[in-house]
Amino acid sequence: MLTSGWKSVSMVDVHGKVTFTLWLCGCNLKCPFCHNWRIAEGLDCFPLDRKVLVEELESSSFLIDYFHVTGGEPLMQWRELGSLFAEVKLLEVPVSLNTNLTIVGPLEKLLKANLVDHIATDLKAPPKLYGLPERPAERLWNLFLRGLDVVSDYEIPLELRIPVAKGFNQWFYIEEGLRRLNTDFYVVLNPLVGKPLTNPRDEDWCSKHCWPEKEVKVLKTKLEELGVRVYLSDF
């Protein structure tokens, strides 16, 4: 497995939880607002020393709520990930997976094997936020919706993060995603701030779409009117 490292105690990767967080390399998306772009592009990565990781996880297990794996997109390395999760389960540590939900078959295999206890994902709306041409982006959006179906089918608790940007009609897609959910979930609104850091990268992108103060307030109100639990990440 290729990793960029891990943090034995983190309080920022799952809302309200303490995690042992592992970052895995590679991604199938090119999101223009990604701040983990070096990990997504496979830069500064190295083979995971699983023995060292598991020993450190065991030492930290009494402090944490989840062993949390993020990226990049962890399911790019799903076979090795499944083996690691099985080993972590022997420590009786709950597992949290941060995935973009577009690699659906491997996701379902891990859920069917009872290897994942919690999912975190970004609802990227509209699909052009994937940073890909229109047709591939629409196809990935449909895969994401299938991923939400799978999470609901297995009744996995879900942290649904919504990157909020200016200049897009996001609500149509947000409603479409919410209709797929039949599991315990909450929403974290993540306003897009700062310059975009990944390719295809255009610094003008941020001047058009970052710092969406009005949009955040509108989305929060709409979601709360639907009875959704909503949290707001820091600007």
Rank of each mutant, 00 (worst) to 15 (best):
L90K: 14
G5K: 07
S96R: 07
L43S: 11
S60W: 01
W78M: 00
T102H: 06
R79Y: 03
L63T: 10
T21G: 01
D44Q: 10
L57E: 02
H35M: 10
T102C: 07
F20N: 01
K89S: 08
F46P: 07
D49E: 09
K7A: 13
H15E: 06
Y66M: 03
C25S: 15
W37H: 04
D13E: 08
G71C: 12
G72T: 04
F62Y: 15
K7P: 09
K17P: 08
Q77M: 01
E41H: 07
E73M: 04
M76F: 09
W78C: 04
C31V: 07
K89E: 12
K17C: 12
C31I: 04
R79L: 13
E55S: 09
L75G: 10
F20A: 08
V14S: 02
L22K: 11
P74I: 01
L43Y: 13
E58S: 10
L97V: 15
E41A: 11
S59F: 14
E55N: 07
K89I: 03
V12D: 13
E73G: 09
I64D: 00
S10N: 10
N98T: 15
W6N: 01
A86M: 14
L24R: 03
E73D: 13
L29Y: 10
V54C: 07
H35G: 10
L97F: 01
K51Q: 14
E55I: 02
W78Q: 01
W6L: 06
S60M: 13
E41Y: 10
L75I: 10
F67L: 03
T70D: 04
V69T: 03
K7R: 12
G26R: 00
S8W: 14
L97R: 06
F20V: 03
H15F: 10
Y66V: 00
